[in-house]
Design a protein around this nucleic acid. Structure first.
Lengths: 159, 159
DNA sequence: CCGCCAAGGTTGTCGCGACAAGAGACGTAC
DNA sequence: GTACGTCTCTTGTCGCGACAACCTTGGCGG
């Protein structure tokens, strides 16, 4: 039985709405990609991050970090993507413990084909609904939250 | 091959951060509740919504709406909660198709015990990190997004 | 009444995410 | 050179969420 600081009405309202968006948004992203490209949102992110990196290669650990994922989760997903021919695993030359994930040409084609529809969904459901000022506010708020959520601050390295 | 309006650098940065938070936040909420109260975040929300309603009763459909869920998902969760003694199903007097979910005393005790820890987590990871102004901004942004995400606008009925 | 469709819930199946356990490889201390 | 701890990744198991199929009841037109 310790002291609890409950939320004020304003805080509560903001939280309930935020909570709702956090609950609903992933479903929207997933179903669009699933429907149009037979990809999970997470699978898409993996392919996208690989396509943005030099030589289309990233170490599993680095890939896990940029996708806000854990290694076990990533490993499973890469296995699936590998069996579909979008990614191939290659031993890392310098470190025999490490594995490199490499985007195949087929995988690259896949993500290139999926990107427009995904960007469109992001616009329709988020960006285009907000003013430039609100986008800036959103960025500031999320940057603050990430300092708590992302211990390694991987995401502070941004373009 | 149609026209694509890519995101501007500012928009992209905001989106990547928002995406990261949407990915990471649910895990934090789930693991705290799981660790301290052996509850899923969604289970907690179900119990909480019931505890806030008159007579601790809500129809399944209404409960699904206020928890941003689908009926199948809710039905499964209520079954689990029922087997643990936190909720009981009762036929709705007025409509023999409908089912009422009723929070038991045990369930009420459970949610009351879990609430402080949960509120604390929400404060630590979200509310207390933001200024009052940012909380207001967050509320405005999320309200806008919900108009798209929540077709029935169930959540616009707020305290 | 009676045939039809919509509304309200439940159940079954499948796939993904979380977690724990394990197998190699690297570094380092002695 | 060898023993220990750490890093890197994989694998197996379990539980939840999405989706589809199904069943019952209610409303409504003829």
């Amino acid at each position: 039985m310790y002291e609890v600081r409950w939320l004020t009405p304003d805080q509560l309202r903001a939280w309930i709405r935020f909570e709702a968006v956090v609950e609903l948004l992933p479903t929207v992203l997933d179903s669009q990609l699933q429907r149009d490209s037979a990809l999970t949102h997470f699978e898409y992110v993996v392919l996208a991050k690989l396509s943005e990196s030099p030589d289309q290669v990233l170490r599993m650990t680095a890939l896990a970090a940029t996708t806000n994922s854990t290694l076990p989760r990533l490993s499973h997903v890469v296995s699936r993507l590998e069996s579909r021919g979008f990614v191939e695993r290659m031993p890392c030359p310098g470190d025999r413990r490490a594995t490199n994930a490499h985007l195949t040409d087929e995988g690259r084609a896949k993500v290139v084909a999926a990107a427009p529809g995904h960007v469109n969904t992001v616009r329709e459901h988020v960006i285009d609904l907000l003013s430039d000022e609100q986008v800036e506010q959103l960025d500031g708020i999320m940057a603050t939250l990430l300092q708590r959520l992302d211990p390694t601050n991987t995401l502070r390295i941004l373009p």
